[in-house]
Design a protein around this nucleic acid. Structure first.
Lengths: 257, 257
DNA sequence: CGAGTAATTGACCCACGTCAACTAGAGTGG
DNA sequence: CCACTCTAGTTGACGTGGGTCAATTACTCG
């Protein structure tokens, strides 16, 4: 459950097995490096190193220093905040191509935890910051990504502050479906399948609910025929229009991204 | 209550009366122009124009196009989201030096409303975007500011998702006090006075509560001697330590900014 | 002084949290 | 292959924080 030491992870062996050439990288055109080419891409390629995390493993603790920044290559990680009495709120989901860490500040404002098996493409902080100064493509791409995240965070504030438990669950499923559909370059429709990337508890932390309420609402949707289960984490959306209705959003939440 | 037409506002007269030279501007070193000097500042000075809004006036509607971006020079504006049935959630407060509008996207994701008398320093979208391309100081400053806002939005998610009504009110007052103290370059302490920049209803929209609950909790804090009122909008924090306790945060929420 | 808006206060109730028991799988090891 | 444990999820019973509706009060501005 603890972060392995640097030496442990920086071993050549650990590297080689996950190494990917940038031009074959699955997140090549969505990550912070998206606009880089030629020399600037080569420079990043030289700097980068990979790290992997097991499900449940802590990537960084809120308040600790993080001596690198990087992109999620595969897997899902959570950004969370915790109060002294243990209440926790997830404040972001890091999906492949999302950026972890804040240039210009080495103390992490939030904890990051691997939700499944996670691989990061990392850059040591100092060289990366230096590179941001000399390569405007990187800073510009990061600005774009940060603006997107800010918009998403603000959307989420509406959900947390104003939506009912039922609406929260429906919104979450709708967003999963829209993202899944976008990846496959088609529209979200009936009988589409999605994988829940989170446990009930993690969903509760994300949605500002308790895990019992999540369980009840999910099963209520099942009972009412809006969704079906397929195995442990699979969900079939049997009635997408109904799901959108239940989410409280207007019909075409224009999420493309 | 409606946004005045462009011509109405762009009249030379309306301009002149609020015009400020950049080197005398109160937000000179905190706004998006903070890192600009010499030529780049001159360029901005040439491009800029001012607009004013009355209390309650809508600056832009969610979904409308906004053909300019700009900085709040004075006053407070809110960024809000509204559901079809009227539920609204404030997703940000724009204070002096804060930036309004998103470069690269002319459709506003959120409504902006003036909470008091507001003055904006505006730039037409296209020239500003062009200038961002040629002047890295601007893009860099905007990145810094956006990262700060993202952190603040995520802090707010914890409040919205997990805090009780009492904790929300206490947190809000604490934040006001910390900002006030920072402006005066001292520590927040007992018997410090703050001005509520928001009505009960606006506070409710900000905190994800109803205005009745806001009223009850504020008055409960008064009854218990944690705060006192001074006139309509003035509040004296008679017991700051207690207020921080009630907020649920650990003692020194390191908010400087 | 009267009208209009903002704020307070009370009575009621329900959505969701809490606490606790129970079930279903997924390993693990004899 | 079956007990044995461990974790994740479900379900029920119950209490309450905060929402809703409505009446009242306090300010402000003609």
């Amino acid at each position: 459950m603890d972060t392995p030491s640097l030496t442990q992870i920086n071993q050549p062996g650990a590297h080689r097995k996950v190494d990917i050439r940038c031009d074959e990288c699955p997140i090549r055109y969505r990550a912070v490096c998206a606009h880089c080419e030629g020399d600037s891409l080569d420079a990043l390629e030289d700097m980068k190193f990979y790290r992997s995390y097991e499900p449940g493993q802590r990537i960084v603790w809120e308040g600790d220093t993080l001596d690198f920044v990087g992109s999620v290559v595969s897997g899902v990680a959570s950004l969370t905040q915790t109060m002294e009495d243990g209440r926790t709120q997830m404040v972001g989901l890091l999906l492949p191509s999302d950026f972890l860490g804040r240039p210009g500040r080495s103390v992490a404002a939030f904890s990051a935890v691997a939700m499944g098996h996670v691989t990061l493409c990392c850059f040591r902080r100092k060289p990366f910051e230096e590179m941001m100064r000399t390569t405007p493509q990187i800073a510009n791409r990061l600005l774009e990504m940060t603006l997107d995240e800010l918009d998403a965070a603000r959307e989420w504030m509406l959900l947390l502050g104003r939506k009912s438990a039922r609406e929260k669950i429906a919104s979450f499923l709708t967003i999963l479906a829209r993202r899944e559909a976008a990846l496959q370059r088609r529209k979200p429709g009936d009988r589409m399948q999605v994988e829940l990337p989170l446990s009930r508890e993690a969903m509760a932390d994300y949605l500002g609910l308790t895990l019992e309420t999540v369980s009840r609402q999910v099963n209520a949707l099942k009972r009412e025929g809006v969704i079906e289960f397929q195995g442990k984490r699979g969900v079939v959306l049997t009635d997408f229009a109904r799901l959108v209705e239940e989410s409280g959003d207007d019909a075409d939440g224009g999420w493309i991204s």
